[in-house]
Amino acid sequence: MANIIGAVTTSHIPAIANAMANKLEETPYWKPFFDGYPPVREWLNEKKPDVIVLFYNDHGLEFFIDKKPTFSIGVADEYHNADEGWGIATIPPVTGESELSWHIANSLVHDGFDMTICQEMKVDHGLTVPLSLMWPGNDYGHVKVIPVCINCEQHPMPQPRRCLELGKAIGRAIESFDSDMKVAVFGTGGLSHQLDGERAGIINREFDLECMDNLVSDPEALTKFSNLDLIEIGGAQAVELNMWIAMRGVLRGKVTELHRNYHAPISNTGSGVLLLDHEMPD
Protein backbone atom coordinates (compact mmCIF):
# COMPACT_ATOMS: atom_id res chain seq x y z
CA MET A 1 0.00 0.00 0.00
CA ALA A 2 1.50 3.33 -1.05
CA ASN A 3 1.53 5.83 1.80
CA ILE A 4 -0.30 9.17 1.39
CA ILE A 5 1.66 11.36 3.76
CA GLY A 6 -0.07 14.70 3.38
CA ALA A 7 -1.16 17.53 1.15
CA VAL A 8 -0.42 21.09 0.13
CA THR A 9 -2.67 23.73 -1.39
CA THR A 10 -1.33 26.74 -3.21
CA SER A 11 -2.09 29.41 -5.76
CA HIS A 12 -0.72 28.98 -9.26
CA ILE A 13 -0.97 32.55 -10.59
CA PRO A 14 1.45 33.28 -13.47
CA ALA A 15 2.58 36.50 -11.77
CA ILE A 16 4.22 34.34 -9.07
CA ALA A 17 6.56 32.88 -11.68
CA ASN A 18 7.42 36.38 -12.85
CA ALA A 19 8.06 37.49 -9.28
CA MET A 20 10.45 34.58 -8.72
CA ALA A 21 12.20 35.17 -12.05
CA ASN A 22 12.69 38.83 -11.12
CA LYS A 23 13.69 38.04 -7.50
CA LEU A 24 10.89 40.11 -5.97
CA GLU A 25 10.20 37.74 -3.04
CA GLU A 26 11.36 40.21 -0.39
CA THR A 27 9.56 43.26 -1.76
CA PRO A 28 6.66 44.64 0.32
CA TYR A 29 4.09 43.50 -2.21
CA TRP A 30 5.29 39.89 -2.37
CA LYS A 31 6.79 39.20 1.05
CA PRO A 32 3.49 38.39 2.86
CA PHE A 33 2.79 35.85 0.13
CA PHE A 34 6.21 34.17 -0.05
CA ASP A 35 6.48 34.08 3.75
CA GLY A 36 3.80 31.39 3.64
CA TYR A 37 6.06 28.89 1.89
CA PRO A 38 9.19 28.08 3.97
CA PRO A 39 7.30 25.75 6.36
CA VAL A 40 5.90 23.86 3.38
CA ARG A 41 9.31 23.57 1.74
CA GLU A 42 10.83 22.34 5.01
CA TRP A 43 8.13 19.70 5.33
CA LEU A 44 8.69 18.51 1.75
CA ASN A 45 12.45 18.40 2.24
CA GLU A 46 12.07 16.44 5.47
CA LYS A 47 9.33 14.01 4.39
CA LYS A 48 10.69 13.57 0.85
CA PRO A 49 7.58 12.37 -0.97
CA ASP A 50 8.40 10.18 -3.96
CA VAL A 51 5.29 11.19 -5.88
CA ILE A 52 3.06 14.27 -6.06
CA VAL A 53 -0.49 13.87 -7.33
CA LEU A 54 -1.16 17.39 -8.55
CA PHE A 55 -4.64 18.73 -9.29
CA TYR A 56 -4.64 21.72 -11.64
CA ASN A 57 -6.58 23.20 -14.52
CA ASP A 58 -5.21 23.79 -17.99
CA HIS A 59 -5.58 27.39 -19.20
CA GLY A 60 -5.47 26.75 -22.93
CA LEU A 61 -2.02 25.23 -23.44
CA GLU A 62 -2.62 21.49 -23.83
CA PHE A 63 -6.36 21.58 -24.31
CA PHE A 64 -8.39 23.83 -26.56
CA ILE A 65 -12.19 23.88 -26.61
CA ASP A 66 -12.21 21.71 -29.73
CA LYS A 67 -12.01 18.80 -27.28
CA LYS A 68 -12.25 19.67 -23.62
CA PRO A 69 -11.92 16.80 -21.16
CA THR A 70 -13.81 17.18 -17.91
CA PHE A 71 -11.20 15.14 -16.03
CA SER A 72 -7.85 14.05 -17.45
CA ILE A 73 -4.79 12.32 -16.07
CA GLY A 74 -1.22 12.17 -17.32
CA VAL A 75 0.43 8.74 -17.52
CA ALA A 76 3.77 9.76 -19.04
CA ASP A 77 7.36 9.44 -17.84
CA GLU A 78 7.94 13.14 -18.48
CA TYR A 79 5.99 16.35 -19.12
CA HIS A 80 7.00 19.56 -20.80
CA ASN A 81 6.05 23.17 -20.30
CA ALA A 82 5.66 25.41 -23.38
CA ASP A 83 5.06 28.98 -24.47
CA GLU A 84 1.68 30.12 -23.13
CA GLY A 85 1.71 33.33 -25.10
CA TRP A 86 2.76 35.85 -22.53
CA GLY A 87 6.37 35.63 -21.75
CA ILE A 88 6.77 33.34 -18.76
CA ALA A 89 10.04 31.48 -19.16
CA THR A 90 9.50 27.77 -19.74
CA ILE A 91 10.94 25.54 -17.05
CA PRO A 92 12.77 22.21 -17.08
CA PRO A 93 10.86 18.97 -17.79
CA VAL A 94 8.69 17.52 -15.05
CA THR A 95 9.31 13.87 -14.15
CA GLY A 96 6.29 11.54 -14.31
CA GLU A 97 5.37 8.27 -12.57
CA SER A 98 3.87 6.18 -15.32
CA GLU A 99 3.17 2.97 -13.41
CA LEU A 100 1.18 4.54 -10.59
CA SER A 101 -0.54 6.88 -13.07
CA TRP A 102 -1.80 3.92 -15.09
CA HIS A 103 -2.84 2.14 -11.90
CA ILE A 104 -4.88 5.18 -10.89
CA ALA A 105 -6.38 5.49 -14.39
CA ASN A 106 -7.37 1.82 -14.43
CA SER A 107 -8.87 2.07 -10.98
CA LEU A 108 -10.74 5.32 -11.73
CA VAL A 109 -12.41 4.08 -14.90
CA HIS A 110 -13.46 0.91 -13.08
CA ASP A 111 -14.78 3.17 -10.32
CA GLY A 112 -16.97 5.21 -12.69
CA PHE A 113 -14.64 8.13 -13.48
CA ASP A 114 -14.14 8.00 -17.23
CA MET A 115 -10.87 9.87 -17.47
CA THR A 116 -9.14 11.20 -20.55
CA ILE A 117 -5.79 9.41 -20.36
CA CYS A 118 -2.82 11.38 -21.69
CA GLN A 119 0.54 9.95 -22.78
CA GLU A 120 1.58 13.40 -23.94
CA MET A 121 0.53 16.50 -22.08
CA LYS A 122 1.99 19.98 -22.13
CA VAL A 123 1.71 21.34 -18.60
CA ASP A 124 1.05 25.04 -18.04
CA HIS A 125 1.48 27.44 -15.14
CA GLY A 126 -1.31 25.68 -13.26
CA LEU A 127 1.09 22.80 -12.66
CA THR A 128 4.49 24.42 -12.99
CA VAL A 129 4.12 27.45 -10.70
CA PRO A 130 3.41 25.25 -7.64
CA LEU A 131 6.50 23.12 -8.39
CA SER A 132 8.69 26.22 -8.78
CA LEU A 133 7.27 27.57 -5.52
CA MET A 134 7.96 24.39 -3.55
CA TRP A 135 11.41 23.75 -5.00
CA PRO A 136 13.06 27.13 -5.67
CA GLY A 137 15.47 27.15 -8.56
CA ASN A 138 13.19 24.62 -10.25
CA ASP A 139 14.95 21.86 -8.32
CA TYR A 140 12.02 19.44 -8.62
CA GLY A 141 13.39 16.88 -11.09
CA HIS A 142 13.74 14.21 -8.37
CA VAL A 143 10.02 14.27 -7.56
CA LYS A 144 7.63 12.31 -9.74
CA VAL A 145 4.45 14.17 -10.62
CA ILE A 146 1.06 12.78 -11.66
CA PRO A 147 -0.99 15.56 -13.29
CA VAL A 148 -4.75 15.44 -12.78
CA CYS A 149 -6.48 18.16 -14.77
CA ILE A 150 -10.00 19.43 -14.03
CA ASN A 151 -12.00 21.57 -16.48
CA CYS A 152 -12.43 25.03 -14.91
CA GLU A 153 -12.75 26.88 -18.20
CA GLN A 154 -15.91 25.89 -20.04
CA HIS A 155 -19.31 25.16 -18.49
CA PRO A 156 -20.55 22.56 -17.75
CA MET A 157 -17.72 21.99 -15.26
CA PRO A 158 -17.71 19.15 -12.76
CA GLN A 159 -19.41 20.20 -9.54
CA PRO A 160 -17.64 20.36 -6.16
CA ARG A 161 -19.39 17.18 -5.01
CA ARG A 162 -18.08 15.29 -8.02
CA CYS A 163 -14.56 16.64 -7.52
CA LEU A 164 -14.54 15.44 -3.92
CA GLU A 165 -15.64 12.01 -5.12
CA LEU A 166 -12.89 12.01 -7.77
CA GLY A 167 -10.38 12.70 -5.02
CA LYS A 168 -11.72 9.86 -2.90
CA ALA A 169 -11.50 7.48 -5.85
CA ILE A 170 -7.88 8.51 -6.42
CA GLY A 171 -7.24 7.97 -2.72
CA ARG A 172 -8.61 4.42 -2.94
CA ALA A 173 -6.52 3.79 -6.05
CA ILE A 174 -3.30 4.91 -4.36
CA GLU A 175 -4.12 2.86 -1.27
CA SER A 176 -4.46 -0.24 -3.45
CA PHE A 177 -1.06 0.26 -5.15
CA ASP A 178 1.43 -2.34 -3.99
CA SER A 179 4.41 -0.16 -3.14
CA ASP A 180 6.01 1.55 -0.17
CA MET A 181 6.32 4.85 -2.00
CA LYS A 182 5.34 8.09 -0.27
CA VAL A 183 2.71 10.22 -1.98
CA ALA A 184 1.77 13.84 -1.33
CA VAL A 185 -1.19 15.60 -2.93
CA PHE A 186 -1.25 19.18 -4.24
CA GLY A 187 -4.46 21.16 -4.77
CA THR A 188 -3.69 24.27 -6.82
CA GLY A 189 -5.38 27.48 -7.98
CA GLY A 190 -8.03 29.58 -6.31
CA LEU A 191 -9.19 31.02 -4.18
CA SER A 192 -11.71 33.81 -4.81
CA HIS A 193 -11.09 35.85 -7.95
CA GLN A 194 -12.69 37.09 -11.12
CA LEU A 195 -10.64 38.15 -14.11
CA ASP A 196 -13.45 38.83 -16.58
CA GLY A 197 -16.34 41.25 -16.95
CA GLU A 198 -17.53 44.37 -15.18
CA ARG A 199 -17.32 42.38 -11.96
CA ALA A 200 -13.56 41.80 -12.36
CA GLY A 201 -11.61 42.29 -9.15
CA ILE A 202 -13.92 40.58 -6.69
CA ILE A 203 -12.14 38.91 -3.77
CA ASN A 204 -14.05 37.37 -0.85
CA ARG A 205 -11.64 37.05 2.05
CA GLU A 206 -14.22 35.80 4.52
CA PHE A 207 -15.36 33.03 2.19
CA ASP A 208 -11.77 32.02 1.39
CA LEU A 209 -10.97 31.63 5.08
CA GLU A 210 -14.17 29.69 5.66
CA CYS A 211 -13.27 27.36 2.78
CA MET A 212 -9.82 26.77 4.26
CA ASP A 213 -11.38 25.86 7.61
CA ASN A 214 -13.82 23.49 5.96
CA LEU A 215 -11.13 21.91 3.82
CA VAL A 216 -9.38 20.83 7.00
CA SER A 217 -12.27 19.71 9.16
CA ASP A 218 -15.44 19.35 7.10
CA PRO A 219 -14.85 19.04 3.35
CA GLU A 220 -18.33 17.62 2.81
CA ALA A 221 -19.67 21.07 3.77
CA LEU A 222 -18.14 22.47 0.58
CA THR A 223 -20.16 20.09 -1.58
CA LYS A 224 -23.34 22.01 -0.81
CA PHE A 225 -22.11 24.65 -3.26
CA SER A 226 -22.66 24.41 -6.99
CA ASN A 227 -20.19 25.99 -9.39
CA LEU A 228 -22.65 28.85 -9.94
CA ASP A 229 -22.78 29.39 -6.17
CA LEU A 230 -18.99 29.61 -6.09
CA ILE A 231 -19.06 32.11 -8.96
CA GLU A 232 -21.61 34.30 -7.19
CA ILE A 233 -19.79 34.18 -3.87
CA GLY A 234 -16.17 34.23 -4.92
CA GLY A 235 -15.98 35.27 -8.57
CA ALA A 236 -15.92 33.50 -11.92
CA GLN A 237 -12.60 31.75 -11.29
CA ALA A 238 -13.43 30.73 -7.72
CA VAL A 239 -14.42 27.41 -9.29
CA GLU A 240 -10.72 26.59 -9.03
CA LEU A 241 -11.62 25.66 -5.46
CA ASN A 242 -12.59 22.36 -7.07
CA MET A 243 -8.92 21.39 -7.24
CA TRP A 244 -8.57 21.93 -3.50
CA ILE A 245 -11.72 19.91 -2.86
CA ALA A 246 -10.44 17.05 -5.04
CA MET A 247 -7.14 17.12 -3.15
CA ARG A 248 -9.00 16.80 0.13
CA GLY A 249 -10.96 13.82 -1.13
CA VAL A 250 -7.72 11.86 -1.56
CA LEU A 251 -7.08 12.14 2.19
CA ARG A 252 -9.44 9.45 3.52
CA GLY A 253 -7.65 8.99 6.85
CA LYS A 254 -6.86 11.38 9.70
CA VAL A 255 -5.97 14.94 8.67
CA THR A 256 -4.07 17.44 10.82
CA GLU A 257 -3.38 21.03 9.80
CA LEU A 258 0.33 21.82 10.17
CA HIS A 259 0.48 25.30 8.64
CA ARG A 260 -1.52 27.91 6.79
CA ASN A 261 -1.14 31.32 5.25
CA TYR A 262 -3.63 33.59 3.54
CA HIS A 263 -2.81 36.78 1.72
CA ALA A 264 -4.85 38.95 -0.62
CA PRO A 265 -4.52 40.35 -3.13
CA ILE A 266 -1.84 38.64 -5.16
CA SER A 267 -2.47 39.79 -8.68
CA ASN A 268 -6.31 39.73 -8.67
CA THR A 269 -6.62 36.81 -6.28
CA GLY A 270 -7.10 35.64 -2.72
CA SER A 271 -4.10 33.39 -2.16
CA GLY A 272 -4.10 30.57 0.37
CA VAL A 273 -1.56 27.98 1.50
CA LEU A 274 -2.41 24.91 3.55
CA LEU A 275 -0.10 22.14 4.71
CA LEU A 276 -1.90 19.03 5.91
CA ASP A 277 -0.52 15.90 7.54
CA HIS A 278 -2.30 12.65 6.73
CA GLU A 279 -2.44 9.30 8.52
CA MET A 280 -3.63 6.47 6.32
CA PRO A 281 -7.11 5.06 6.97
CA ASP A 282 -7.29 1.62 8.69
Binding site: G60, A82, G85, Q154, H155, P156, E198, R199, L228
Partner: peptide, 30 residues
Amino acid sequence: DQREVEGTVLFDHRMAKKGYGLNKMCFSFN
Protein backbone atom coordinates in the same frame (compact mmCIF):
# COMPACT_ATOMS: atom_id res chain seq x y z
CA ASP B 1 -30.12 26.56 -12.96
CA GLN B 2 -30.30 29.41 -15.46
CA ARG B 3 -29.46 32.21 -13.06
CA GLU B 4 -27.33 35.10 -14.28
CA VAL B 5 -24.48 36.65 -12.33
CA GLU B 6 -24.29 40.40 -12.76
CA GLY B 7 -21.21 41.69 -14.54
CA THR B 8 -20.27 38.16 -15.58
CA VAL B 9 -20.56 36.30 -18.88
CA LEU B 10 -20.54 32.59 -18.13
CA PHE B 11 -18.45 30.74 -20.67
CA ASP B 12 -21.10 28.16 -21.41
CA HIS B 13 -22.20 26.24 -24.51
CA ARG B 14 -23.63 29.39 -26.11
CA MET B 15 -20.41 31.32 -25.70
CA ALA B 16 -18.22 28.34 -26.60
CA LYS B 17 -20.00 28.04 -29.93
CA LYS B 18 -20.28 31.76 -30.65
CA GLY B 19 -16.66 32.42 -29.76
CA TYR B 20 -15.07 29.37 -31.33
CA GLY B 21 -13.11 31.14 -34.07
CA LEU B 22 -12.19 34.04 -31.80
CA ASN B 23 -10.84 31.68 -29.14
CA LYS B 24 -9.09 29.57 -31.74
CA MET B 25 -7.29 32.66 -32.97
CA CYS B 26 -6.26 33.56 -29.41
CA PHE B 27 -5.17 29.95 -28.81
CA SER B 28 -2.79 30.39 -31.77
CA PHE B 29 -1.06 33.19 -29.81
CA ASN B 30 0.62 30.43 -27.78
